[in-house]
């Protein structure tokens, strides 16, 4: 019984972190699906989202506003606005001018942007860890008090539910809305979509904005869940989310969700049953194995050479 509870606890830990990875992974996968480049500055957009949320929360608390739902919603809105304008600006400044050139050029531009944003935050916010105030404590306990107790915290529940809502909204948006339809068209054939009168520049910007907004949501949630942010916050998370996107099949939105969850659970099971030292070994080995045996990822479609 106790072992079972332990297993479920690690599963919950893994699913929590996995759903956050999935939120970030969407940004990688959508951008890749549409223009075939990897936006390495995406992790930094997520970090900036977390910082903005922290600043908003601190600001509200300073004004004496402490009603939790209000604080969270305001922080979320601020983070989404700042991050998505950041995502839009990054695309405009660093990617659009080099679009259509050799594939390596936007990639290098992305890495440059990532370094720039990281150091910008270093300068603007200092390099120390800044703590999030503990807003959401407590949770449900399962199991008897004198042995191992499984706990499901309110924070974890919030992360699940928010991710679920975001994912549902995104799926609806992509499948039903006008812009969503245009997104799909552009991802199938950019030039043809252009010929048919779709403003592809606008659609590409929209993709960056959507990806950045989801990253901002993840930034707020994970910042609160972990409890602190620093300028390197986005680097590892970005790398993991990228792995998740590739794992699920880069370019595929359900793939990013699945990849994120698998990666999160694999990580927590490794540190739960083996040792935390092997956590990253396992997640990146998983990536290598997938690339070796199923290069398109779990849910990715084989790329058809466009003539």
């Amino acid at each position: 019984m106790q072992d079972l509870l332990y297993f479920f606890q690690q599963l919950i830990n893994g699913l929590t972190i996995g759903s956050a990875y999935a939120l970030i992974a969407i940004g990688y996968t959508m951008v890749y699906g549409i223009i075939g480049m990897i936006n390495f500055a995406h992790g930094e957009v997520y970090m900036i989202g977390a910082y903005t949320a922290l600043i908003a929360i601190t600001g509200l608390t300073a004004f004496g506003i402490a009603w939790l739902p209000l604080v969270l919603i305001v922080a979320l809105i601020c983070a989404v606005i700042v991050s998505s304008s950041m995502g839009w600006a990054v695309e405009r400044v660093a990617y659009r001018p080099v679009r259509g050139r050799h594939r390596l050029i936007p990639l290098i531009s992305a890495i440059g942007m990532s370094i720039f944003l990281q150091n910008y935050v270093h300068l603007a916010q200092g390099s120390r860890n800044i703590g999030f105030p503990a807003l959401m404590d407590g949770g449900f306990q399962f199991g008897s008090a004198d042995s191992f107790q499984m706990s499901l915290s309110y924070m974890q529940i919030t992360i699940f539910i928010t991710t679920l809502i975001c994912m549902t909204l995104l799926s609806l948006f992509i499948s039903r809305s006008r812009i969503g339809r245009a997104c799909r068209a552009v991802s199938q054939d950019l030039r043809m979509a252009n010929l048919l009168g779709i403003d592809t520049n606008r659609i590409i910007s929209a993709t960056f904005v959507i990806g950045a907004s989801l990253a901002a949501v993840a930034g707020l949630l994970l910042g609160m869940y972990y409890g602190s942010v620093d300028p390197l916050f986005g680097f590892i998370a970005g790398l993991k989310a990228f792995t998740a996107a590739v794992l699920g099949g880069i370019g595929s939105i359900p793939g990013a969700m699945l990849g994120g969850l698998i990666l999160g659970v694999a990580e927590s099971m490794t540190s739960g049953y083996l040792s935390g030292e092997y956590k990253d070994v396992v997640s990146f080995s998983l990536l290598i194995l997938i690339l070796l045996f199923k290069p398109t990822g779990l849910l990715g479609k084989p790329e058809v050479e466009k003539i």
Binding site: Q10, N13, F233, E277
Partner: peptide, 22 residues
């Protein structure tokens, strides 16, 4: 006796393990 990665943020699995080890 276990190592973690400096710079990591997510210690939920480690914490669960500590809790389990009582």
């Amino acid at each position: 006796f276990e190592g973690i990665t400096a710079g990591d943020k997510d210690f939920s699995s480690l914490v669960t393990k500590i809790k389990q080890a009582n």
